[in-house]
């Protein structure tokens, strides 16, 4: 079994990047591997927007990720600063009463991704516990 951490950097629709990331996650889990977390950075934060509005024969990545989380209980974290800069806001900020951040996603600091990798670095000798970071 391999442990993975997934780093998504592109917005949905514009590129197939996030779709590939999700398919990778699903395939990895089916093959018996583990996805520790998916982290959204740069334009990747757009994956979390409940404002995504696509026809039923198109792919709504926010919905797909939310379903993925429900089925597999994988944390979906996004960089809170990257999100704020791109208009993705959680509703707990009083100056921003409305939220377009889907409930499946958690706004966190950058370090959330790296602390997992760091823990990994300390256990490098134990190959089974090593987390592989994959950037999409």
């Amino acid at each position: 079994m391999q442990r993975f951490a997934i780093f998504v950097t592109k917005s949905p629709y514009d590129s197939r990047n996030a779709e590939s990331a999700l398919r990778f996650c699903e395939a990895a889990i089916t093959a018996g591997h583990r996805i520790e977390q998916v982290f959204f950075y740069q334009s990747g934060v757009h994956n979390s927007s409940t404002f995504l509005d696509l026809n039923t024969d198109e792919i709504n990545m926010c919905k797909r990720w939310s379903e993925f989380k429900l089925a597999n209980d994988v944390p979906l974290n996004l960089c809170v600063t990257a999100a704020a800069r791109r208009g993705i806001v959680a509703e707990d900020q009083k100056s921003k009463p409305d939220s377009n951040l889907a409930a499946a996603f958690t706004p966190v600091g950058m370090s959330e991704y790296f602390s997992a990798l760091n823990e990994n670095a300390k256990n490098e000798k134990d190959a089974a516990s090593t987390i592989k970071s994959i950037q999409f």
Partner: peptide, 9 residues
Amino acid sequence: GLPKPAKCL
């Protein structure tokens, strides 16, 4: 009088 430092840094 500076901007607020980025949250995650």
